[in-house]
């Protein structure tokens, strides 16, 4: 009986022959694992469902609008009483349409993305503490940095994950509403409303870049959930109340509205949609110029980038 010769295979070692694809692929892996981490949390899905409720309101609202327009225009309504008279109900439907603006216009998409504000704020506060703050708090940063990637790749990876979240709540549902209205209306809508498509993408991009940078800065700075929430709500809720007080209450210049970063992004979005500044809604609130709002967003982003670049260059990221 021949004996098999002992071979190195017995050792069960396997050399790594695969070529490495560079550190930026590491960022993609970090983004993927961060999203998987979030997807495993019930809290994430609860919050995401809340954001979907707003989307569904608009989604079915558009159908309801068209449905009502068709149904009521078919008949007249006669009021009761001694002085009963016939009313054209489409008058009321038009009033409803003008108020709700669920009709595939710039207002529809702008209002939808603005309305998502509160829930985006809550979800990002959660995501910031879960996927960025925890890495700093529980010292898991060395785990990432022990791999052949730098700190900037780590930050880009986290930024990608946050960007996906922001888009999943704003741009993508916005695009769905756009596609939906084309089906409700005619396909001509797509041809005639390319500016709206550009507006959704540009507004979404502004939200993505600004919110991602802001969240990275606050999460790396504060780390813990509650302080993160405090600063995050100050940036989105308090600033809104303060600007209302200063402009509507005290009659100061509308430029004070620039304090409200969410409003600045809304203005930028409306600029991209091509909305006339004089027709901005609500009509009783005078808004600062589009370019001023855009300048504020750019400054905020630059400050965030400056802060992050300092963090990246810092010798000690983990205290």
């Amino acid at each position: 009986m021949s004996r098999p010769a002992p071979s190195p295979h017995l050792l069960r070692y396997r050399t790594l022959n695969t070529a490495r694809r560079g550190p930026w692929f590491g960022s993609v892996a970090i983004a993927r694992s961060s999203l998987q981490l979030l997807a495993g949390r019930k809290m994430f899905w609860t919050l995401y469902i809340f954001s979907l409720l707003i989307f569904l309101l608009y989604f079915f609202g558009q159908y309801l609008q068209v449905f009502l327009e068709q149904r009521v225009s078919e008949s007249l309504v006669r009021t009761g009483g001694v002085f009963g008279r016939t009313i054209r109900p489409d008058f009321f439907v038009n009033m409803l349409r003008d108020t709700l603006r669920m009709n595939g216009t710039a207002d529809t998409y702008g209002d939808f993305m603005w309305t998502e504000g509160y829930i985006v704020m809550v979800l990002l506060a959660f995501a910031g503490s879960a996927i960025v703050g925890n890495d700093f708090r529980f010292n898991s940063l060395p785990f990432y940095l022990s791999k052949p990637i730098g700190r900037r790749h780590y930050l880009v990876g986290k930024a990608l994950a946050i960007a996906v979240l922001v888009n999943a709540m704003t741009t993508i549902p916005g695009l769905c509403l756009y596609v939906e209205y084309g089906f409700i209306d005619t396909w001509e809508y797509y041809k005639n409303s390319t500016r709206l498509l550009f507006g959704i993408l540009a507004y979404g991009a502004a939200l993505t870049i600004t919110l991602t940078l802001l969240l990275l800065v606050t999460a790396t700075w504060l780390r813990r959930t509650v302080p993160l929430i405090m600063v995050w709500t100050a940036a989105f809720v308090m600033s809104r109340l303060v600007q209302r007080w200063l402009v509507d209450g005290l009659g100061l210049s509308p430029r004070w509205r620039l304090l409200d970063i969410w409003n600045d992004m809304y203005l930028f979005g409306q600029w991209c949609f091509g909305t006339n500044h004089l027709l901005l809604r609500p009509g009783n609130q005078i808004q600062p110029e589009y370019r001023e709002a855009t300048a504020v967003i750019v400054v905020v982003c630059l400050v965030c980038v400056w802060y992050l670049s300092r963090r990246v260059r810092a010798v000690e990221v983990v205290q």
Binding site: M43, Y118, V122, A125, F126, S129, I229, T233
Partner: peptide, 17 residues
């Protein structure tokens, strides 16, 4: 709750508002 800050935030600035 495991993430009380987030639940409370949702309650205070979403539900209550």
């Amino acid at each position: 709750f495991q993430k009380p800050g987030i639940v409370a935030l949702l309650y205070a600035f979403f539900f209550e508002t």
